[in-house]
Structures are given as structure tokens and as C-alpha cells.
Simulated assay, not measured.
Amino acid sequence: MTRLLTAVLVASTLVSAPAWARLKVDDKASLWPRASMVDKIDFTDRMGKAMHALSPDLDSRYFMHCLEETTNIGDTKDLRLDDMVRTCLSLHAREAADPE
């Protein structure tokens, strides 16, 4: 009985958060809407930490909002997540240059 319970717990842990499911910058942008919230948070945290030196406004919240908006607006076709991150950086630069 203990072996069965241990096996079920290990299997459920592996299924719920597999390491190979982590979003990477070279993944297709079309994966974003279907990704788990944990994967999205992990990805935006990494982007926020990497880009925070460019501007304090480039944090995980900014990337979460921007990626949600840009990937859900239209057909991303063959775009990758790094294309979407560059788009977010471009939008941020444009907003910083032209504050309204």
C-alpha cells in the first residue's frame, strides 16, 4: 500500500510540473496561450530578471501583461517567444520615448 501511494505521489508530481514543459525563448509563441500559469510566471520572471538592468519598468509583471496581450491579439504563425519579447522591448522603448 505504501509503495502504491508513493508511486501515485511521484507520478502526480511529475505530471503536474514536468521540467521539460518549461517555456523557452525559442518556443513557438502559439504555445503561450496553452501554457500553464506556473510556466508563464517562470518565463516572465526569467525575462524580468534578465531585462531589469535595461529599465526598472521591465519586470515580470510587464512581460506577463505584454506577452498576454501580444500573443492573444492575432495569429502568431511561426513567431517564437523571443520575437514576442523583442516586440515587448520595442513597445517599452517607444512608450519611454513618447510618454503621453
Rank of each mutant, 00 (worst) to 15 (best):
I73E: 11
A96Q: 15
S16I: 05
D26Y: 11
W20S: 12
P33R: 07
G74I: 06
I41C: 02
R61H: 09
A11H: 00
V85I: 11
S90R: 14
S55K: 08
T13F: 12
S36F: 07
H65M: 06
A93L: 01
D45I: 15
V38L: 12
T71Y: 09
K49C: 06
A29S: 11
L79H: 07
C88L: 02
D42G: 01
R61Y: 06
A21T: 07
E68G: 05
L23I: 12
V15K: 06
P56C: 04
M84S: 10
E100I: 06
I41K: 07
E100R: 06
M64F: 15
A11N: 01
G48H: 03
N72R: 10
F63R: 07
H65I: 01
A97E: 14
A50T: 11
L81E: 10
D59R: 03
L4F: 09
A29R: 01
A7H: 04
M51V: 00
D26W: 11
A17Y: 10
A19Q: 08
A21P: 03
E68Q: 08
L79F: 09
N72L: 10
N72T: 14
D39I: 03
D26I: 05
R46V: 05
L91W: 00
A19V: 11
D59P: 03
K28Y: 14
A97I: 02
A35S: 15
M51Q: 15
T44D: 03
A17N: 12
L23A: 04
R80S: 11
N72P: 00
R61P: 01
L4P: 00
V8E: 07
S90Q: 13
K40P: 00
D75P: 04
S30D: 09
V10A: 13
C66I: 00
H92C: 00
I41G: 02
S36T: 15
L23N: 04
D75G: 03
R46Q: 12
K49Y: 04
D59I: 10
T71V: 10
T70I: 09
R94P: 00
L23M: 07
E100Y: 03
C66F: 01
L89T: 00
K28G: 10
A29V: 09
R3E: 12
V10R: 12
A35F: 05
S90P: 01
R94L: 06
P56K: 13
P99G: 09
A11M: 04
L58D: 02
E95N: 12
K77I: 02
D45H: 13
L23E: 03
K49A: 15
